[in-house]
């Protein structure tokens, strides 16, 4: 069977940023201890006219342009998000019409907290491998919510990544697996505007258990050790967890640095680990091996081993993720409240 993997990728990060200092000032907290404790210096903020659908479309358009493929060859679209604009009515259909992929395509929205994006990638891999479709579009995008004053407010941000999955990839999927359990670490009930979480419970039994187990297992099953990887990227709910789990698994900081985008952009939820992964693809060379482990509360992790192919040399990778991250426009807390529609209007 010819190799299947990532044929193209595109990213989108809204231009506004809010700094941790600005949020801390409002809630009477110490910015320095937040920044060192959370490892997040600033986060992206969507404009009033941006949402998961617009972010998904922009990221997808970049991916299609870079792939130089006819969008009509895309046979499936999955949009993973926990902030779909509609509770009922798919985001994927909006994306489909906006990118002009015709009407004969499979579409569905995924929700699995922060790993709905990688869930879509796995589904697309299966559909391409089975011969059901030629190309699949898997998107992870969010304009994540956080209650004012909640620690989440420092990290919950906006952004998205779109992957085109198909044959003759730039990054071949060598292996993938998932580890899933019913773990109530973070949730949002139907009709509630903001998510709730279990505080420190989100750590050991949730994030670390799932990410570690999935990462450890995929390496063991495929006969790899951490030093066999050029890069590793883990879900980034804050700047601390991915660094710690990398250390637990035996990775050195140089292996994760390129993909550690959370400090400057926040947690883009369904776009989080895949945005870091995209930052790695921006600089990866043929022969590089990459470990990606996502995490979604509730809870589960999808792990992937990717091998970069020669095709990446011909592949258009500008503008790079880090350029987009560093190109922000700062807003203050009151503008942030308006942009995030946290001001009750008549």
């Amino acid at each position: 069977m010819s190799s299947v993997g990532i044929v193209s990728y595109g990213t989108y990060i809204p231009k506004f940023r809010i700094k941790a200092e600005e949020i801390a000032k409002v809630w009477g907290e110490d910015a320095d201890s937040i920044k060192s404790g959370l490892g997040v210096l600033q986060k992206s903020v969507p404009d009033l006219d941006e949402d998961t659908a617009t972010i998904s479309v922009e990221a997808s358009r970049e991916a299609i342009k870079r792939a130089k493929i006819d969008p009509k060859k895309i046979g499936a679209i999955f949009v993973g998000s926990e902030s779909h604009p509609y509770a009922v009515k798919p985001t994927a259909t909006i994306v489909g019409d906006a990118i002009g992929c015709g009407n004969f395509f499979h579409a569905a929205d995924y929700e699995f907290a922060c790993k709905a994006g990688t869930a879509g990638i796995q589904t697309c891999i299966a559909m391409v491998k089975s011969g059901m479709i030629e190309y699949g579009l898997a998107i992870g995008a969010d304009t994540s919510q956080s209650a004012p004053g909640d620690p989440l407010e420092y990290s919950a941000s906006a952004g998205g990544t779109a992957f085109i999955i198909g044959k003759s990839p730039i990054a071949e999927v060598e292996a993938t697996l998932s580890f899933t359990s019913d773990t109530p670490d973070f949730w949002r009930r139907e009709g509630q505007p903001y998510p709730s979480h279990g505080g420190r419970f989100t750590g050991t039994p949730a994030y670390f258990r799932h990410v570690y187990t999935a990462g450890e297992k995929i390496m063991r099953e495929n006969g790899y050790k951490p030093e066999d990887f050029d890069y590793a990227v883990f879900h980034q709910p804050n700047g601390k967890f991915p660094v710690r789990v990398a250390r637990m698994l035996g990775f050195r900081s140089e292996q994760i640095e390129q993909g550690l985008v959370v400090r400057k952009v926040g947690n883009t939820y369904s776009g989080s680990s895949v945005l870091g992964f995209s930052a790695i693809l921006d600089v990866a060379k043929p022969g590089d091996k990459i470990l990606l482990v996502s995490f979604g509360s509730g809870a589960g992790s999808d792990a992937f081993i990717f091998d970069i192919t020669d095709r990446i040399e011909e592949f258009e990778r500008e503008p790079k993720v880090w350029d987009k991250i560093n190109r922000g426009v700062e807003v203050d807390y009151s503008v942030y409240l308006k942009l995030r529609r946290k001001i009750k209007m008549k």
Binding site: D49, E50, D51, A53, T54, V57, P85, Y86, I94, A98
Partner: peptide, 20 residues
């Protein structure tokens, strides 16, 4: 061009997207 939201039919209505 950029794909953006134009307006919404209130909080429970449809969302009008378009090109900006």
């Amino acid at each position: 061009k950029a794909f953006r939201k134009y307006f919404e039919d209130g909080e429970d209505g449809i969302i009008y997207y378009g090109t900006k």
